[in-house]
């Protein structure tokens, strides 16, 4: 089995209007080549799920600037003024979710859970429309799982069946998103042969990864 494909083939799997999770934190650990591919191939009307919208010239920010996004579900848009401008002009829909809740909703989907109870957001506008539960005298909100058609993630070193390790702060949302989408495409800095990575250090087991695109 060899999951390595070229960029063109990978991008052909991403269709207009899909919901796409993209790893990274302010562009750090984002699959930039896959984003290049989406922009070049003209894929549009995407719903993006990501921690933030990075910067206008970096990461997910480039998809916003190039108008490929109709909705974004995220925890932070403050570093990309273009997201705010498009939101105010009603050209894009923005759903803000607390960061810990966002990642846990994605994890819940990948872990087969119907949701989870969190104290985050109690008493704020985040609780609007959500069920509240009192457990041992503390209030919690019910948050539901969040999945996607496709997850685009960035790994550091990956073997040909997708076993992956990460590098420094590039890990962030990537291993969690790898579990929560119907199709998972991983962009790897280095591709190695099966057996080269010590099983003890694998962070994302290859079973979560459908396709691999190498950088360079």
């Amino acid at each position: 089995m060899d999951k390595v494909i070229n960029l063109e083939k990978a991008i052909s799997l991403i269709k207009n209007g899909m919901t796409v999770m993209i790893g990274g934190f302010l562009g750090n650990g984002t699959p930039e080549l896959l984003i290049d591919g989406i922009i070049e191939r003209g894929v549009k009307d995407l719903t993006i799920i990501a921690n933030d919208t990075a910067f206008p010239d970096k990461g997910i920010g480039r998809l916003i600037v190039n108008r490929r996004v109709k909705k974004v579900i995220t925890s932070h848009i403050g570093t990309n003024p273009e997201t705010g401008r498009q939101m105010t002009a009603k050209e894009i829909e923005v759903e803000l979710v607390p960061q810990g809740t966002l990642v846990e909703r994605i994890r819940a989907k990948g872990a087969g859970l119907g949701g989870f109870l969190t104290p985050t957001g109690v008493g704020t506008i985040v609780e609007e429309g959500k069920e509240k539960f009192k457990i041992d005298n503390k209030e919690y909100l019910l948050e539901k799982p969040l999945g996607a058609d496709v997850a685009l993630i960035r790994g550091y070193k990956t073997d040909r069946i997708g076993n992956t390790v990460y590098y420094k702060s590039m890990r962030n949302f990537n291993p969690i998103m790898a579990m929560a989408a119907d199709l998972v495409i991983l962009e790897a800095d280095h591709i190695v042969e099966v057996g080269e990575l010590d099983p003890d250090i694998i962070v994302t087991p290859g079973i979560f990864v459908d396709y691999i695109v190498g950088r360079g």
Partner: peptide, 27 residues
């Protein structure tokens, strides 16, 4: 190292004994 940044996106260093983990563990 541009691949080692804090939550504000600024490059940082880590001390001996540091650890990296995913966002779920972080929260």
């Amino acid at each position: 190292d541009p691949n080692l940044v804090n939550a504000g996106g600024q490059m940082i260093t880590v001390k001996p004994g540091a650890a990296f983990f995913d966002s779920s563990l972080s929260f």
